[in-house]
Design a protein around this nucleic acid. Sequence first.
DNA 1: AATTTAGGCAACCGCCTGATG
DNA 2: GCATCAGGCGGTTGCCTAAAT
Length: 236
Amino acid sequence: MTRTPCCEKMGLKKGPWTPEEDQILISYIQRYGHGNWRALPKQAGLLRCGKSCRLRWINYLRPDIKRGKFSKEEEETILKLHQILGNRWSAIAARLPGRTDNEIKNFWHTHLKKRLERCEVRKVSAPSSWTQASSSKGVVMLPMPQLAVAASESSSSADLGFTGKVLMSANEGLASRKYAATVDSGFHGAHSGDASGETLGGHRSNNISEEMEFWYDLFMKAGQPPQVHANLGQIA
DNA sequence: AATTTAGGCAACCGCCTGATG
DNA sequence: GCATCAGGCGGTTGCCTAAAT
């Protein structure tokens, strides 16, 4: 197999795009589509690498981009989704038509993150539907979608506290795929009685949206959303 | 008015994944 | 099965502008 090397950067321009470059890129894509990003700049007559063109188009020039301030609804959606998805900006952007992952990422770092840091975390009682089980360490089953928490720490005090890996397999809504996530610094949902090792009855969601809402509500009811962050990666 | 500081955002960098030869 | 590439993603940087001193 022989392909030409990627990103021949010699002589390629970097830095801010000029209106002329923008116009060339827009005209070219409107006429021919982007097809192969790597080949595009050469064909369009731009001294940029394909990656740069792609980024410029996706984050700035695309006609369906919504610019301007984020609405309250959008802010809430971002906060909510970030609780569930972590820094998966593209996944969050997919739920906000017209917004790009880069824009959301920037908005998060400049506005929402600071706002969150100012907020006190309140603790409330866990849902009454949580039932007790006996084991002091091990698996905690949550309603949906068959969440297994392999608790690396556990407490027999009045508060539930654990950190560890979260493994969940979703057999609905997520097309039977398995996902792994990491609970960051501990999920401390206030709960009366022995906390570790619980089995809960079967909530099931029919789609990802519903599932996200379920998780969000569940964690919020528990007082402090677990930091399920970064790579909610597919493991099987 | 000049200088410094902070915030906002566009763009780059490096890594990962899936596709291809 | 392996190597390489293109596309995609998230983290980070650095420039520009407005606010503060």
